[in-house]
Design a protein around this nucleic acid. Structure first.
Lengths: 137, 137
DNA sequence: CTTCACACTTACATTTATGTACGTACTTAC
DNA sequence: GTAAGTACGTACATAAATGTAAGTGTGAAG
């Protein structure tokens, strides 16, 4: 375990902004991070890693997502260049969603985190059990 | 690019719940994911990867965080067993925060994602530039 | 004597996220 | 003829996240 840092001062803002720095409040990275780590963004990326899915297939795959939020999330990810949207002009509508190369890289990182959490849930749950009152949230 | 999956059906819920499955709406993993990927949770984990920091040091490190949200986030992560809180009983107060082994593993995954985003911001920004109207969010 | 830092907590206001319900235009299945 | 499925958009309502401002008790610095 590292020693406490007695006299800590953050690096100057100018330096921290040169290459996107999340610690800087105004960094555009935070927007992307928001989309990718959003409640449904994570699950969409992971779901699409398994291959192309239609809107309704995504909706059935991801438990609890509403149509509205799924559409919203897909639009975020499409705008960020993570997701391809392919609409076939037929009726009833048929729209396919898939990951772009960018999206596949992002999905991989996100899935590593998700897998880690699922796998280590027991260890985490110990902490919940240990603390008595515990109702933090 | 994978082929469209014409007749997709998700696996049964019972099977998906046996080991924590994020796709299941009620899975406790989602709570952990929420804390870890929350706006400030990500940044706290990354900040603490560099070593122990005091409350006020964290506040100065993480641009834009309010005292209230920092305290809140630290409590979430502490309850999830990711963060150690060490209060020295002196006045004025002195409290150190550091990562637990669990927290270090989580922080690593989170940082990989954050680093990827920062590094690939230019590629992502292209998508923003490409689409004309673009004001998705 | 006044001000400030510390590490929070609480109350309150506001912004953001998310949900619900409905509409659409047409087709296939019953 | 009636119901259901498709991929959304939109209006409205609610829940959740986040911000703001103030207060706490004490000691050191000015």
């Amino acid at each position: 375990m590292p020693e406490p840092n007695e006299d800590y001062t953050p690096p100057p803002l100018s330096e921290r902004m040169q290459r996107g720095d999340l610690m800087a409040a105004a960094c555009p990275s935070r927007k992307v991070l928001k989309h990718v780590t959003s409640r449904w963004g994570v699950l969409v990326l992971i779901a699409l890693e398994g291959g192309t899915l239609r809107f309704s297939e995504l909706r059935r795959t991801i438990g609890g997502v509403s149509e509205r939020m799924l559409a919203q999330t897909l639009q975020w990810l499409e705008a960020d260049g993570m997701v391809n949207r392919t609409a076939h002009d037929v009726v009833p509508p048929h729209v396919d969603y898939s990951l772009t190369p960018l999206g596949q890289e992002a999905a991989e990182k996100v899935r590593l985190l998700a897998d880690w959490i699922e796998f280590n849930l027991p260890r985490i749950a110990e902490s919940w059990a240990d603390r008595q009152s515990a109702a933090v949230d």
